[in-house]
Each structure stands twice: as structure tokens, then as C-alpha cells.
Amino acid sequence: MKNKAISYPYVGWMGLFVVAPILIITLYAFTTDDGGFTLSNFQDMAQYTSAFGRSFLLAAIATVVCLLIGYPLAYLLARESGWLHRMANMLIMLPMWMNFLLRTYSWKFLLERHGLINTLLGLLGLGPFQMIDTQGAIVLGMVYNFLPYMVLPIFSVIEKIDPKVIEAAQDLGADSITVFRRVILPLSLPGVLSGITMVFIPSVSTFAISRLLGGSKTLLLGNLIDMQFLGSAYNPHLGSAISLVMMVIVMVCMAVMNHFGDGEEGVTL
């Protein structure tokens, strides 16, 4: 009975700040201004299909880049020890101690036409290049901000792999590539799937990065929803419908990744 009593504040918090907002968004998505039932809000989303496609494409690109950078980094970090291990951990965590907007603003100043990068390139007789207000700048901002969320889960899983398992594979005649392909990679897949989820979800729903680094030229779902609730195109019913559809799509993607992750912990030599 005491254990159940401890859970009551948590249940109340979840009900008030998670379940209730979802119910309100669902109600708005299926109603009009006068409270009548309608499906027109979902029909009106057809004009923003490009924003849906662009958001998921850029999020997928950022996730792949984070995986290509994060997995080798996590692997090397897990194999190191001593001061190098602690230093690398600190360098990965250090940007996360800063405010999210400050980190994104720093890239805005670096990438602008008369920013530091173009200035340095100008000394070499190159540029200036249009780097700010581009989709590439948005992907760069996503990778920079969300890369630790890819590295840390993979690092945590690889670090816990029992060295005796690797030694057993080597004793059976497996070379380094085979050990990685047949032992380390399968055992690290839970961390990979967790990292993909933790990077893809905030990337597909971000609006601060696209607003600061993409300007008004690139409309993503986060910006579109922000416009419907706070911008000049005020339409909370349409914004709720877009939010609901995006949430469903993200949940389906998570379910698919979790399905492929089932049973991947096994090792076959």
C-alpha cells in the first residue's frame, strides 16, 4: 500500500502535464471554432505535405550523420581508460551545459556571410559562401546539438560488454573485424536504436534550429506548428491536427525500431 502511495504524485504529474495536453490537442484537432466535429483540419494539412517530407528528410539525414560520427566515437571512448576517458567524456558533455539557444546562436554567427568561417576562408581567397539560411545549416545545427544523445547510449552499452566475451571470440579464431561484426555490433544495437530515437525525435520536431539557421526559407513541422499557435497564421485547430499526426508518425517509427531491436542482443560466432 505504501508503494502505491509513493506513485500517486507521479501519476498525478503525468495526468496533468502529459495526458491532459494530449487530450486537449486531440479535441482541438477534431473540432471547429464553434465546437463542432470536423475532419477538415486534417484535409487542410495537404497543403503542407512538403513541410512533412522536408522535416523527416532532414531529421533522417541528421540522424545518419550522428550515427556515422557517434558510433566510432563511442567505441573508441569505451575502449579508452584513465585521463583520456575522463577528458573525452567532459568534452562531449560540455556543450550540453550551455543553453540550447546560445549554442545555436553561436553557429548563426559562425555561418553568416561575414562570420568567422567566411572570414577565414576569405584569407585563403575563397568565398564568401552562403552557409546560413540553408538546409545544410539546419542539419549542422541538429548534429551539433543532438550528437551527445547518440554517443552516450552507444557508449554506455559498449562499455558494459564483458571483455571475456570478446576474449572467447578471439580464442575461437575470430579476427578483429569478425569480433566487431559478430560480437560488438550485435550487442551494441540496443544503444544504437536508443540513440537513433533520441536524435530523430527532437530533430523532426525542432523549430528553434530551423528558425535561427534556416531563416524563413525552410519551413519545418516545428515552425509550422509554432505559426499556428503563436504566429500570424493563428489556427490552433490546424496546429493541433498537425501535432497529432506528427506524434502518431513518430510513435509508429519508434514501434518499428523497437520491433527490429527485439532479440538483437544475441551473439553468434
Rank of each mutant, 00 (worst) to 15 (best):
V250D: 04
F42C: 03
H114C: 05
F42E: 06
I92Q: 03
F207Y: 14
G141Q: 05
L238I: 04
F17N: 05
K4H: 06
F42G: 02
T104E: 03
P128G: 06
K2M: 01
F109H: 12
T197Q: 06
M87C: 09
L213K: 05
I177T: 14
P148G: 10
V199I: 05
F146I: 04
V151L: 04
M93E: 12
S216N: 09
A255G: 04
T206H: 12
E159K: 02
V183E: 05
F17L: 12
N223P: 03
S232L: 15
L212W: 07
F129M: 11
L187W: 01
A168R: 14
W13S: 06
I154K: 00
A241C: 10
G122T: 09
Q170D: 11
L73K: 00
P95W: 10
I161N: 04
A46R: 04
L84W: 13
K4W: 05
N99A: 10
L212R: 07
V192E: 01
K164T: 13
L84K: 07
Y105D: 09
G70T: 04
G12Y: 12
I132D: 00
G222Y: 08
W107Y: 15
M93C: 08
F30D: 03
L57A: 08
M198R: 01
S210K: 00
I117K: 01
D44E: 11
A174H: 11
V250A: 14
L238D: 00
L269E: 12
P72L: 08
P21M: 06
R79I: 09
A51N: 04
I196V: 15
P9E: 13
S55N: 09
S156M: 09
N3R: 15
M227V: 08
I201H: 02
A74K: 02
E265Q: 07
V139A: 08
L73R: 00
T49P: 01
I196Y: 00
M14K: 12
P190E: 12
Y10C: 11
M227F: 10
K108G: 05
Q135P: 04
S205K: 13
F155P: 00
A20Y: 15
G115F: 15
V267P: 00
L224Y: 07
A233T: 07
F56D: 02
P128L: 09
N99Y: 05
I249T: 15
P186S: 07
N145M: 13
I196A: 06
S216Y: 05
A169M: 14
I25A: 05
G12V: 09
S240Q: 06
D171A: 09
S194M: 13
A46L: 13
P21C: 07
I166M: 14
S203Q: 12
S81L: 03
